[in-house]
Amino acid sequence: MTGVAEARPTGTGVGAAAPTRRHRVPYALVLVLLGVLVAVAATAGIAAGSVAVPAGEVWGIMAHRVHPALADPTWTPVRETIVIDVRLPRVLLCAVVGAGLSVCGTALQALVRNPLADPMLLGVSSGATVGAVLVVVSGLSVFGRFSLSLAAFCGALAALVAVYLLARSGGRMTTVRLVLAGVATAEVLSAVASYLVVTSDDPHAADSALRWMLGGMGGTTWEVLWIPAAAVLAGTAVLLGVCRSLNLLLAGEEAAGALGLDVHRFRAVMFTVVALMIGTMVAVSGAIGFVGLIMPHIVRLLVGADHRRALPAVALLGAAFMILADLAARTLISPEEIPVGILTALVGGPFFLWLMRRRAAS
């Protein structure tokens, strides 16, 4: 069924907010331009900082690390350390988190057939926040430097199970119950996290927990990068493998069921995949909202609603956006750093309101 992606769904589904239109720009060109945007954003993210490094030198340092014969080391060891050990892992984490949140947002908007859906919909981010805040304010370090990530992941998984059980009734799970369960769980867990911060006896720990709740990439190392990177790559591969089923959902639940898709089982599996991706990312970056809401809408305007086209494009756009957002967060009021979650909220909030008004007027 290759034509389903081009169907114009009725009602309030994803397609209602992004009607099918002719592709004016070749898809391959869109991918190339987005890839260039990611490269430019990454170069700027590595070059900018308290110690500025020329863009050519950035590429020279990385080429030299790949193979010494590719570039002559004309830079100082300090600059090489800054590029390789400080800024490069941070930029890569930004790319991973931005791509992952955008891919999850695209999938969720199809799964619940609601263009206002965001990866924070399931309450998984709030669950991860509770786990991480508990570690920060209590000082627990049973697993060393991985204690924070492990606690956040466990919190995300617990939130996922709670939402899943609350949303199921009679062996079935509907979109309305899922949204209500996710919102209610997120509110309760956010209140728990806030309570832990307010009642903390250590002001420094409370401040650290609060900044983590606002989202940020500070202190990223190579050791914590591979886990979210592996989760995002694996999850994106799974979603790419079920693009046909995601496209079927755009035509409506009844149409998808008539074409052989077990909608309820498919949603349950996909919610698990998406929630685990989100939990893994939040464990290392904190709660960052609206990225998964904005990027899918922009990409659908560029390449259409077909997930075979949209998922690769939204991953690239999300990666570039998050790199640039993090760059702005650490340079706007340098030497202080703004939590990147604040900047994404400042951009995403007005976009969300505009989108609601647009849907109300349609």
Rank of each mutant, 00 (worst) to 15 (best):
R211I: 02
T199N: 12
T199K: 07
A191R: 10
V188W: 02
H204D: 10
Y195Q: 13
T221D: 11
V188A: 13
V188F: 13
V198A: 09
M213Y: 00
A205C: 06
S200R: 01
R211A: 03
V198M: 13
A205R: 03
H204V: 05
A209I: 02
D207Y: 08
G218R: 11
S194M: 11
A191F: 08
A186K: 01
A193C: 12
G219R: 09
D202I: 10
T220A: 15
A209D: 02
A186G: 14
L210W: 03
A209F: 01
S194L: 13
L196S: 11
T185S: 12
V197P: 05
G219H: 09
S190K: 13
H204G: 04
W212P: 04
S200L: 05
S200Y: 01
G218L: 05
A205S: 10
T220G: 11
A205M: 03
S208T: 14
L210I: 02
M217H: 07
S190R: 15
L214P: 01
S208Q: 15
V198G: 02
T199M: 14
S190E: 06
S208M: 07
P203K: 04
E187V: 12
A186Q: 05
M217P: 00
A205V: 03
M213L: 08
A191K: 04
W212Y: 14
G219W: 10
